[in-house]
Simulated assay, not measured.
Amino acid sequence: MRTDAPALMPIFRSQLQARLLLEVLTSAEPLTASQLARTLDAPDATVSREVRRLVEAGLVRGERVGRALRLHPAVDNPATAPLRQLLVVTFGPAMVLEKALAGIDGVQHAYIHGSWAARYQGEPGGPPGDIDLVLIGRPSRRVVDTALQDLEEELGREVNATYVSPERWQDDDDPFIRTVRSRPLVALRLTPELEEDA
């Protein structure tokens, strides 16, 4: 099945390819294709094909452990470091924000909205200028601001957080909420997945 090049960075063959590379190149631990398929919510066969292409291209290395192929960055490839940086600033904001916000009390839900979310979901347009984040709940703003303060350098973009109470988020008459909810949103996973490979 042919897919369109991703609007965020059309140099990649598909959004799945870019997200898969991002996961492998930024993970502290080796990943298997089945772990990637779960994380990316993609069919195992599709992920396995993509992994095979990336291993053959020398961007990812595979180490066989039993029946599983553990994937890690090809650190000896001079393209790996700049490719990782490119992926973090284009496809990485959701992943980076998830890690930064994980475990912060009082954040019930978090979404990226605005131009980055629109490009991520395939809406054409210019490159996003910043990352717009809406946090639903009653977290300590000081704790959240501290968690976010160093991300702008990593992401190469300003991160703008808006705090919204759960009651306001449900208010369909609020013009800001109505606008945000009517446009593309990227939900952030704030709790780690408990599923392990057998």
Rank of each mutant, 00 (worst) to 15 (best):
A74D: 13
A37I: 02
P124M: 14
G156E: 11
G122T: 06
T3F: 10
A198C: 01
L133F: 13
F12K: 02
E193C: 05
A100H: 01
R181H: 09
D76H: 11
G137R: 04
R49V: 07
A7R: 10
Y111T: 10
A100L: 05
E153S: 13
G122M: 10
T26G: 13
P43V: 06
D145I: 01
L97A: 00
T146F: 11
R183G: 13
G126H: 15
G103Y: 01
T46P: 07
W116H: 15
R52H: 07
A147R: 12
S115M: 00
D172C: 05
A74Q: 07
F176Q: 07
V55L: 01
L21C: 14
R138K: 11
A42R: 14
F12E: 00
E63W: 02
A147C: 04
D44R: 12
G129D: 14
T80C: 09
A187C: 12
T179M: 14
Q170D: 10
L16Y: 05
P10A: 07
E153M: 09
V164W: 02
P73L: 08
L148M: 12
T26C: 13
F176E: 08
F12I: 03
S115I: 01
L31I: 04
T80S: 14
G66D: 08
T80R: 11
V143Q: 04
R53A: 04
E50H: 06
R189V: 03
R183Q: 14
D41G: 10
V75C: 01
A74P: 02
K99H: 00
L59V: 08
P192L: 07
Y163D: 07
S115K: 00
T3D: 11
A118I: 12
R67I: 05
E167N: 04
V164E: 00
P82M: 00
G122W: 08
A28E: 09
R38L: 03
T146Q: 10
I11Q: 15
D130H: 14
T32D: 02
P93Y: 11
G122H: 11
V89P: 04
H109S: 11
A198Y: 08
L86Q: 14
M1N: 10
T3E: 09
W116S: 09
M95I: 01
E23W: 14
I104H: 06
V55P: 02
P184H: 13
I104D: 05
M9E: 14
S14Q: 06
T162A: 12
I177L: 08
D41I: 10
Y111R: 07
R178D: 10
L22G: 15
G66E: 08
S34H: 06
R142D: 09
R183H: 13
P78Q: 03
L36S: 05
R142F: 00
T32W: 01
D130C: 09
S115Q: 03
V143E: 02
P82Q: 04
L8G: 01
A57Y: 04
F91K: 11
D145Q: 13
L86F: 02
